[in-house]
Computed example of a mutant assay.
Amino acid sequence: MEFCPTCGMLLQYELPHMDSPARFFCPTCPYVCHIDSKVKIKRKHRLVKKELDPIISKDDELDNLPETEAPCPNCGYLKAAFGQQQTRSADEPMTTYYTCKKCRHNWKED
C-alpha cells in the first residue's frame, strides 16, 4: 500500500496503457508516481541467524523453583524442585511438575 505524500489518501494503481508506464495516482489531488518497470538487485546478502543466549539458564530456573521432599523415581533422591500448572479444566486439580535436584530427572503428578 502506498499513500499520497500530499494529502495522505490511498494511492490507486493504473495499469500500463499504450506508451504510458504503470503508475500510482491520487484520486483527490494531482499527485502521480510513475513505476519503473525494471528493478535491479545490486547484490545478494546471505542472512545469517544470530545465536541468542538464554536469559535464564536451566540451572538458574531450577534454583529459583520451590523445593519439596518427593522421592525421585529414577535415583531415589528425596529433594525435588516443583512447579504447578493448570492443564485441564478449572474444576480439576493442577498438574505438578517435579525435577530431581540430583539427577535432573523430570516427572509429573496429575
Rank of each mutant, 00 (worst) to 15 (best):
Y13H: 11
S89V: 00
V32W: 06
R104T: 10
K44E: 07
E67G: 13
L47C: 04
P66A: 10
E69L: 15
K42A: 09
A90F: 07
F25W: 08
D53S: 09
F82S: 02
A81T: 05
D91M: 01
L15F: 10
M1F: 11
E61F: 10
R23D: 05
D91E: 09
S37P: 10
E51F: 08
K42I: 05
L62N: 03
Y31W: 11
L15K: 14
C7M: 12
P16H: 02
K79C: 00
Q85F: 02
N74K: 15
M9Q: 13
P16N: 07
H34V: 11
K42L: 12
I55D: 02
I35V: 14
A90L: 11
D36S: 08
I55Y: 02
P30E: 14
P21H: 07
L78A: 04
K79Q: 10
T28F: 13
C72S: 05
T6Y: 14
V32G: 12
C7T: 09
S20E: 15
N64G: 09
Y97H: 02
Q12R: 12
I56Q: 03
P30F: 13
C29K: 10
C26E: 08
N64Q: 14
M9E: 15
E2S: 03
E61H: 02
N106I: 14
C75W: 11
C4H: 11
K101P: 03
F24W: 14
E69Y: 10
A81N: 05
K58T: 09
P93D: 02
K58I: 04
L11K: 06
D19K: 08
T87P: 00
E2H: 06
F25S: 10
T68Y: 02
E67P: 01
S37C: 03
E2T: 00
D63M: 11
H17Y: 09
P5N: 11
T95G: 01
D19H: 05
E2K: 04
P66N: 14
E69N: 12
K49V: 08
C103W: 09
D91T: 02
C33A: 15
H17F: 12
W107Q: 06
H45W: 06
P71R: 12
M1A: 14
F3Y: 14
C7W: 07
K102C: 14
T28Q: 15
I41S: 10
D60H: 01
P73W: 04
A70Y: 05
R104K: 15
Y97A: 07
Q85Y: 06
A90I: 09
K38I: 15
K44N: 04
H17K: 15
M94R: 01
Y31P: 04
M9A: 15
S57T: 10
Y97S: 02
Q84D: 01
R43Q: 10
H45D: 15
A90C: 01
K101F: 07
P27V: 08
Q12A: 09
L62S: 05
T87A: 03
I55E: 11
A70S: 09
K108L: 06
E51W: 05
R88D: 08
E14I: 07
L15W: 05
P16G: 03
K42V: 05
Y77T: 01
C33G: 04
C26K: 04
R104M: 04
C75D: 11
Y98R: 00
C33D: 12
C103K: 11
Y98K: 00
C72P: 06
A81G: 03
E92N: 00
P54R: 09
K79N: 06
A70H: 07
G83Q: 00
D60Y: 00
D19V: 04
K101Y: 03
P5F: 13
G83L: 04
K42F: 04
E14A: 14
